[in-house]
């Protein structure tokens, strides 16, 4: 299919970047990056959400900055420059959380400064922002960051639901629910993540099967068109 409207083309391009970052290239589901905060803080959906939000913000700032200065940094020193930029933004986020979200800051603790070494962020700076325009890098950061947050909230929600019978602190299963402690403990994080990854793979396979089917139908239609064209000529 060809797009002749430049606006539509632009929107399609951004949508493709977003879909890639959020789903097809998702830091957790597809690349299995950033496991440390994922397994460490997702004892509840709320913890997962704020950890994801902090990472999203760091990712947006670093992607945008790296993209803006991408011509000015010599290739040899780009990694130390990127890490310095990421560390600065993460420290700023940490100080802001300490000041205005003190309780959540105490819960997330060490995992906030550890965002600096989340390879998903340096990975995006290196693989995307250093080669693309600021706008595209911003879209990529938003997609990657929200995909990461989605994964953290999903895992946190599953663990909170099975471990305590609650989601975001709301009682779901009632007071009689026998808390399955294992899901709050580290082994539960691995087990829940395994099942979620299996689910993601099933969805991906179904999506691919549907796409193949559509492509097959399209191909037969085109052959039919060609045949008619041949007959007419």
């Amino acid at each position: 299919m060809q797009c002749h409207d430049p606006n539509e083309e632009l929107v399609n391009q951004k949508a493709e970047i977003f879909a890639n970052g959020f789903w097809h290239n998702n830091a957790i589901f597809a690349q299995l990056l950033g496991m440390c905060p994922l397994l460490g803080v997702t004892t509840s959906a709320e913890n997962g959400f704020w950890m994801g939000a902090a990472t999203l913000l760091a990712l947006v700032c670093s992607n945008l900055t790296v993209s803006l200065i991408r011509g000015a940094i010599p290739a040899n020193v780009r990694i130390p420059a990127y890490i310095t930029i990421i560390a600065a933004f993460v420290s700023i986020i940490e100080m802001a959380m300490n000041a205005w979200m003190h309780e959540m800051y105490l819960i997330l603790g060490l995992f906030i400064p550890l965002i600096v070494v989340n390879c998903a962020i340096l990975g995006r700076a290196e693989a995307f922002a250093s080669k693309n325009t600021p706008i595209n890098s911003l879209v990529d950061a938003l997609a990657m960051g929200s995909g990461f947050t989605f994964a953290l909230v999903l895992l946190g929600g599953v663990r909170e639901l099975l471990g305590q019978g609650e989601v975001f602190g709301f009682d779901i299963f009632g007071a009689d629910y026998p808390d399955v402690l294992m899901f709050i403990l580290p082994p539960g994080a691995f087990i829940a993540l395994g099942f979620i990854l299996a689910g993601v793979n099933i969805i991906n396979r179904k999506m691919k099967a549907r796409k193949d089917k559509q492509a097959a139908i399209l191909a037969t239609m085109q052959t039919a068109d060609l045949n008619t064209a041949e007959v007419q000529s």
Binding site: P80, T84, A87, I92, M95
Partner: peptide, 18 residues
């Protein structure tokens, strides 16, 4: 110069936030 500028700007940002 590139590293120096990045370092100085980041330090200034951090100091301001502080």
């Amino acid at each position: 110069i590139a590293l120096l500028v990045v370092g100085v700007v980041c330090t200034l940002l951090l100091a301001t936030t502080n």
